[in-house]
Design a protein around this nucleic acid. Sequence first.
DNA 1: TTGAAAGCGCTAACAA
DNA 2: TTGTTAGCGCTTTCAA
Lengths: 338, 338
Amino acid sequence: MADDGDEAAKRPVTIYDVARAAGVAPSTVSRAFARPGRVNADTAARIRQVAAELGYRANPMAQALSTSRTKMIALMISDVTNPFYSELIRGAQLAASEAEYTVLLADARESDVVERLSLERVLPAVEGIVIGSSRMSDSSLRVIAKQKPTIVLNRDVAGLPSVVTDNPRGVRRAVEHLGELGHQQITYVAGPEASWADGARWRALREAGHELELHTRRVGPVPPTVVGGRGVVEKLLDNLPTAVLAYNDLVAIGLMRGLAAAGIDVPRDVSVIGFDNIMAAELVTPGLTTVAAPLRTMGVTAVKNLQAIINGALHRSEAAFVLPTRLVQRESTARARR
Amino acid sequence: MADDGDEAAKRPVTIYDVARAAGVAPSTVSRAFARPGRVNADTAARIRQVAAELGYRANPMAQALSTSRTKMIALMISDVTNPFYSELIRGAQLAASEAEYTVLLADARESDVVERLSLERVLPAVEGIVIGSSRMSDSSLRVIAKQKPTIVLNRDVAGLPSVVTDNPRGVRRAVEHLGELGHQQITYVAGPEASWADGARWRALREAGHELELHTRRVGPVPPTVVGGRGVVEKLLDNLPTAVLAYNDLVAIGLMRGLAAAGIDVPRDVSVIGFDNIMAAELVTPGLTTVAAPLRTMGVTAVKNLQAIINGALHRSEAAFVLPTRLVQRESTARARR
DNA sequence: TTGAAAGCGCTAACAA
DNA sequence: TTGTTAGCGCTTTCAA
C-alpha cells in the first residue's frame, strides 16, 4: 500500500518549474523554446540548461490548446492489412516526422461506415488528413474536407486536392505490352465498385483497347484480395481469355493460383498483369508482371502537400498530383498461343 | 480578398455555445456528456439535442489538458514495411477503437536511434505504449516504461509486462516435424542480434535438437528480409544442410529463392521452415511451412493489457503473456533424401 | 440537480 | 529583452 519511493508521484515538470529554477518568467521559458531569437542568448542557454536538468518536456496538449496546432495528421487507410499500404505508410511517416508531425493511423477495414466513424473521431485532434483509397462517397469526402485540410489518395474528387497514379499511361503500357505479345483480347477483373482506381483502370483499358484494336471485356467486381481473385476463376473458365489485367496485385495473385489449380498454366495459357507492384508480386511464381505505383513517393507527396495546405502555401483546390507508373515485366506474361 | 461566405471563419462550436443555446451553465453541458447520470434526464436530452444541432464536437486537447487523459496510445514498430506487422496493427487498432482510443503509429525503421527519438516525441501525448520487436536495449526500455505504461511485444524484459509467442513450443514442433521426415541435422539462419525472438528461437532449437538427438548449427546473422535470406545461401552451399529453420518467413522466402537460383530444389534437396506465417508464406511456391504466430491476437492482447494497466487493473510487472503458436505445414518440407 | 469559479500547461498580446 | 495578464475549451470542486 505504501507509496514506493521509486515510483514517486511524478507530477510532470512544467514550464513554471523551469521558470522558477531559472529565475525568469514563464513566458520567457516559452519563448526560449518557441522563438529563440526573441530572447537573450545567455538567458536562453540557461533556460535550456535548467530545463534539461529538470527533465522538462512540453505538454503537447497544452500547446495544442493554446495554439490550436496539434502537430498531428491523420492517415486514413481502407485496409491496413493490405500490403499496398506498407510502403505508403512508411513514406507518410517519413515526411511527417521530418516536419515534426505525428501520424494518427486509422483503419477503415474496407467499410465506409467504419471510415466515416473513425474520421469523425480523429478529426478534432488533427490538423489535416490524408485519405487513402476511400470507400466513401464524393460528397461525404467533401464534408470532411470542409472541416480540415484533406488530401485524397488514389481518387479524384472535384475540388479536392489529390495524389493519384497515372492509370491511363500505366494501362496503356500494359496493353501495348500485351499487344506486342500477340494478344487479341484482354479481360479486366474489376475491384470494388467504390474504388476510383477501378473505374479509372477499366476506362483506360477500354480506350487503349479501342485505339490498339484489341477486344476488352470485364468481369467482377471482386473483393480486392487474393481470395477475391481466386474466386473469379470459374467465371473466366467458360470463355478463357489469353490475357487478363487484374484490379491489383492481390487479385492477380489469387487469379494465378486459381488458374494453376484448374490446370491452366500462366503465362503459357494465359498472361496476367496486376497493379501496384507490392512486395508479393516479386515473390510469387511466376513473378507477376505489374503496373508499378511509386508507393512510398505517394505517401511522401500526400503528406508534403497536406503540410503545404496546412501552412497556407497551397490552395485547397489545387489540381491532382499525378505520379508516374511503370510496367515491371516479370514472368506472368508471354506470347499468346491461341 | 473578400471573406467568401462559404468558407466563413469557422470557429469551432464550444461547450459555451451549447450552454448558451440550451440555457444552462457550461458545467452542466460537460456533465451531460461525461456523467449523464448526474443531470436531469430532460435537461440532458435538451443539451444533446442542441449540441447535435449546433454540430458540437468536444475538443480532445482541452479534455486531455484538463483530465490528463489523452485517449491515445502509441504503437511503436520496428519496421512498418514488414508484413509481420500488418495483422498486428489491425488487432491493435481493433482493441484500441473498442475502448475509444486512438493509435499513434511510430516507425523505428529498424534503428534503435530512430526508435528512441520517436518514442520521446510521442511519449508526452499518449497514455501508454506498445513496443513491437524493439531494437533498443533492456535498460532503455525500462527508462521508457518508467515514464508511461508500456507493453513490449516479442520480447521479454525483466520487470516489464510483455506479450510473446511460445517460441520453445513452436520450435519444438518444427523440430519434431523435421525429425519425423528423417532429417538428422538442422541449420538455423539467424536474424538481427538485437532481436529477442532470435535468441529465443536459437536457444529453443539447441534444446530441442539435443533432446531429439539432431545436430544443430547456426549461420548468420542476416537482416530480417528477403534480401537477407537470399544473401545467406552461399554460406550454406559449402555444407548444404537438409533442413533449415529461418529466423522468419521473409528470410525463409529469400532463402528459397536463392536456393532455387542455385539449382537446389526445395523441398527435395532441402526443407525450409519459417516463422510467423505472414501472408506471403502462403503465396510463394512451394508454400512455406512455418511456425505461425497469432498475429492479430498479439495486437489485441497487447492493447488490452496496456489498457488494463492504464486503468490500474493490472500491475505493471505482471508476467509475460505467452500466446500459442502452431506449425502450418505446406510444401517447403519433405522427407530427407540424404 | 445546477451554477460559479478555479485551474490544467502553455502561448500571445501588451506593457514596461 | 522581459514580465504581466489573459485566455485556449474543458472538468471539477464547492456552494447553492
